[in-house]
Design a protein around this nucleic acid. Structure first.
Length: 521
RNA sequence: GGCCCCUUCGUCUAGUGGUUAGGACGUAUGGUUCUCAGCCAUGAAACAGGGGUUCGACUCCCCUAGGGGCUACCA
């Protein structure tokens, strides 16, 4: 009995842009598999495309992975026994390996120019043949090759594809047959000396002892070529698992025109990382017929490659919102407060000239009060005094605030005088002269209050309605629009309380002015 | 064009020869309420099409269609 070999998987992005949501899903599945199996998750940067690779992108990708919490066991920043983990630093390796192939007659130098190749292809296409390399440099005599290399003639190194068939075994799709003639004498080393993706990936995966290659579906057609390289180099073959693609709502490849497409965009919008991770896990994988909510620990516990599906999945923002919301809902009040607080700061929702006085902390229970006070003392933000009131606001908002991302817009009216306004609500509730009278009276009574807490406010408002012989709703609805700009909000008496006496009276006054200023009908 | 992959409600999916084809998102209706959210109740909504195999196909095979990928000195 040999000890079971350690599972090693890798995520190998090329630094040519932000971390795309599809790549993030690939990274996640690799990470989950590694964590599930007690294996190693390796990060490798495939920057063999000198033109498109950038340093900014490299940093953005690492940053996105860190934010997602997909920590790697070997790779950039931390190194490892099989480094370096950036392909541009592994040149020598590729050359040694390709040298072996040349010596074994499994690869050869090709001196064809891009122009010649282009001609070759259009020629073939014209004659209705598949465009392939015609093999004209396949059997150049050795001394001829040597002579041209000495002359520094530009050349690439091609794989000498043998005739026959190659079968790929995919963990998700089973056996897939390919005919080698379709594979072509593809390029291993470009004329700039850099390896192509197919070659570098194989050498690195082999040298890094990768046991499972889990990657996007778009690589499936590359796999037989890679299998041929493994065989030519006598490398042990890893297992392959090709994940279905993630598509946009129109079932075409997900891109910017579908809205957010990169991890950093979702982060900026305000999604919770665990919400995004949970949603991504559900794209192409399902644990059973009902479970959808997963913490990352549970994901690790339940993940398996066997339950990965074959069909491409369309990205559904609605469902993401829902899953994200489920994670937000599970947060404790203080966790929400901290998150929302930071987010409001990022969105400049705390203008310095907006002060709310005369509200009470009585709406919090003892435990909540203690923890918010502790939080306030340890927070060093300029706006930390807002924390207690924010805690009450979030409590009062309850499940109306479904996602963190909505906080700046939904809560703006509590913190500043410029907030989104629904004009239809104004027309509906703030257009009647009687309403102006009611609101004026309400403002007057509120202004006189000694104790400005929720129950007193409610008593006053309802009492006023009774005195004036109108329904409470006739005051409540206009009041809501006057104070929040919308026709929906939490319990209006709580809103009044949280806005404080001064702001409430001020906004009621503005609403009265608005009605009075309306053209007479 | 060639090769390869994929195809269950609008979307994500469960399902592995015999099920009223299940769940979730979204959506519709009613109830509760100061609005909304929530909650409760009730709906609508799918096996791409056609051939086989079989006593019996969503499930197995073939074809067609549609979508996707590869076909680069991109990854």
């Amino acid at each position: 009995m040999t000890a079971p070999q350690q599972i090693r998987v890798r995520f190998a992005p090329s630094p040519t842009g932000y971390l795309h949501i599809g790549s993030a899903r690939t990274a996640l599945f690799n990470w989950l598999y590694a964590r599930r199996m007690g294996g190693a998750f390796i990060l490798r940067i495939e920057d063999t495309d000198a033109v498109r690779s950038t340093e900014t992108s490299y940093e953005a990708i690492l940053d996105a992975l860190q934010w997602l919490g997909l920590d790697w066991d070997e790779g950039p920043l931390i190194g490892g026994p099989y480094g370096p983990y950036v392909q541009s630093a592994r040149q020598v390796l590729y050359h040694n390996e390709v040298q072996k192939l040349i010596e074994r007659g499994k690869a050869y130098r090709c001196f064809c120019t891009p122009g010649e190749l282009q001609e070759m292809r259009s020629d073939a296409t014209e004659r209705g043949l598949p465009p392939r390399y015609d093999g004209r440099c396949r059997n150049l005599p050795g001394d001829e090759v040597e002579r041209r290399v000495m002359q520094k003639a530009a050349n690439v190194i091609r794989f000498r594809m043998p005739a026959g068939k190659t079968r790929v075994y995919d963990l998700i799709r089973g056996a897939i047959p390919f005919d080698n003639v379709e594979l072509d004498d593809f390029v291993l080393i470009k004329s700039d000396g850099k390896p192509t993706y197919n070659f570098a990936a194989v050498v690195d995966d082999a040298k890094m002892k990768i046991t499972h290659v889990i990657r996007g579906d778009d690589h499936l057609s590359n796999t037989p070529k890679q299998v041929m390289i493994y065989k030519a180099l006598d490398y042990p073959l890893p297992k392959f698992a090709h994940l279905p693609m993630i598509l946009g709502s129109d079932k075409t490849r997900l891109s910017k025109r579908h809205g957010a497409a990169s991890v950093q965009e979702f982060r900026r919008i305000g999604y919770l990382r665990d919400g995004l991770v949970n949603y991504l896990a559900l794209l192409g994988w399902a644990f059973d017929d009902k479970t959808e909510f997963f913490t990352r620990e549970n994901l690790i516990k339940k993940f398996s490659l066997k339950r990965v599906g074959k069909n491409p999945a369309a990205f559904d923002p609605d469902k993401l919102n829902h899953i994200d919301g489920e994670h937000f809902k599970k947060l404790s009040l203080m966790e929400k407060v901290v998150l929302v607080f930071d987010r409001l700061q990022e969105h400049d929702v705390f203008p310095s000239d907006f002060n709310v006085s005369e509200w009470s902390i009585a709406e919090l229970n003892d435990r909540e009060r203690a923890s918010v006070i502790e939080r306030k003392e340890t927070n060093n933000s300029h706006y930390r005094d807002e924390l207690p009131r924010l805690a009450i606001i979030i409590k009062v908002m309850g499940n109306r605030l479904k996602n963190l991302k909505d906080a700046p817009n939904m809560l703006a009216y509590y913190f500043k005088d410029e907030y989104p306004v629904d004009h239809r609500a104004y027309e509906e509730h703030l257009s009647n002269a009687n309403t102006a009278e009611h609101l004026k009276a309400l403002a007057g009574e509120l202004w006189e209050l000694e104790t400005f807490d929720r129950s007193t406010i409610e008593k006053v408002a309802r009492g006023l309605a009774e005195k004036r012989g109108i329904s409470a709703a006739a005051i409540i609805h206009p009041c809501r629009v006057a104070l929040t700009g919308k026709s929906v909000s939490p319990d209006i008496f709580s809103v009044i309380h949280l806005l404080g006496k001064e702001k409430t009276v001020q906004r009621l006054g503005a609403a009265v002015d608005h009605i009075v200023g309306l053209p007479k009908k």
